[in-house]
Nucleic acid binder design. Structure first.
Length: 333
DNA sequence: AATCCAGCCAACCGCTCCACT
DNA sequence: GAGTGGAGCGGTTGGCTGGAT
């Protein structure tokens, strides 16, 4: 059974907003507040879809929006956040005050993805989360209102405490489930394809989205992906956080133009993980992260390569069991 | 001056999730 | 528990703009 369209399209205006429409919308929201987008156009006297009104307000009319070019600091932040979160633009935007997901998405697509494509010293390590329960299905959607509200209200710490209190995160649990289900070849280690897919985007984006779906699974108390991200972000972006670096032997060349960590069969297999384990030491020190003291926090990010050593700060190696995130090693971005 | 082309960005669209009944 | 509406997310599109030819 198909759903009715979000609004009656007939007679509604599309395309660019006029100054008058902006004024009407801004005035209405100023008087009545945000929300009830579906009924807003009618109440405000706008011949627009509610979704269109919402988008216009969020991306353009909101008072707290930052205008102007993305600064270098913001750009670096976007790069790092994208390396961790993938194409979860709303989450990324949540860490960049005054910037919208749409703006960041556009900026990435127009500026950074191309730079990333030119990048030749990185390597992408992907995990095929599409094979997870529910993996690969998620497109769009949202995190729970409670989560977002908590995040917006700066309640991340509380949520995190809650997480700690109950031990292993739901994400990790989902991954564990997934771990049971998946086969060896679920692990994909890839260089960027020779197509338009740049290093820093890659198929992992889909996977990142799939991973996002795990974050909001519906049993038990909710995890807060944003709160979790805050922890990651503070480690990634906090004072003294180093630039992500790349191992000496890594390559990010197109499959037809240079070395690749994809195996000769052309497909990611368990052998690839073995190969990676042999060739690559993923040095977490490079990210300035103290995994050994933050296992709880890093559950969603730990590795899935049985053969891969993760260098633990302070020396030694740690074998990780799960992978949640694709990793993108950046150099000289 | 005219045309072409690539890049940028605002807006649209389809999908998904959550809350409510 | 199922159905439905509201809302939010990410991917994609299309028009505008500026530079190149």
């Amino acid at each position: 059974m198909g759903r009715a369209p979000c609004c009656e399209k007939v007679g509604l205006k599309k395309g660019r907003w006029t100054k008058e429409e902006d004024e009407i919308l801004a005035r209405y929201i100023k008087e009545h507040g945000e929300g009830s987008w579906r009924s807003l156009p009618k109440n405000a006297g706008l011949l627009r879809c509610g979704k269109s009104c919402r988008l216009r307000w969020i991306n353009y009319l909101r008072a707290d929006l930052k205008r102007g070019n993305i600064s270098e600091e913001e750009e670096e932040m976007i790069i790092k956040l994208h390396a961790t979160l993938g194409n979860r633009w709303s989450l990324i935007a949540g860490h960049l005050p005054g910037r919208t997901d749409n703006e960041i998405k556009n900026y990435w697509n127009s500026h950074l993805s191309r730079r990333a494509a030119d990048f030749r010293d990185g390597v992408v390590v992907n995990v095929d989360l599409s094979k997870l329960p529910g993996g690969g299905k998620r497109r769009g959607g949202r995190v729970s209102r409670g989560v977002m509200a908590a995040a917006k209200a700066g309640k991340d710490k509380k949520v995190k405490e809650k997480e700690k209190g109950k031990g292993k995160s739901k994400v990790a649990e989902a991954e564990q489930q997934q771990q049971q289900l998946k086969d060896d070849d679920d692990i994909a280690v890839s260089t960027p394809s020779s197509h338009s897919q740049p290093c820093a985007t890659t198929q992992s984006e889909e996977q990142a989205q799939a991973s996002a779906s795990g974050v909001t699974s519906d049993d038990g108390p909710e995890e807060d992906p944003l709160a979790l991200s805050e922890e990651m972000m503070s480690a990634l972006l906090g004072p003294g956080s180093p630039k992500l670096e790349v191992g000496p032997d890594r390559s990010c060349m197109d499959s037809d133009s240079g070395p690749s960590v994809v195996d000769s069969e052309g497909g990611p297999t368990g052998d690839v993980a073995q190969e990676l384990g042999d060739k690559a030491i993923m040095d977490w020190n490079l990210m300035g992260l103290d995994i050994s003291t933050a296992d709880d926090m890093w559950d969603p990010l730990v590795w899935d390569y049985a053969d891969m050593d993760v260098v633990v700060p302070g020396g030694g190696h740690q074998q990780q069991e799960e992978v949640m995130s694709d990793l993108f090693f950046l150099d000289n971005m």
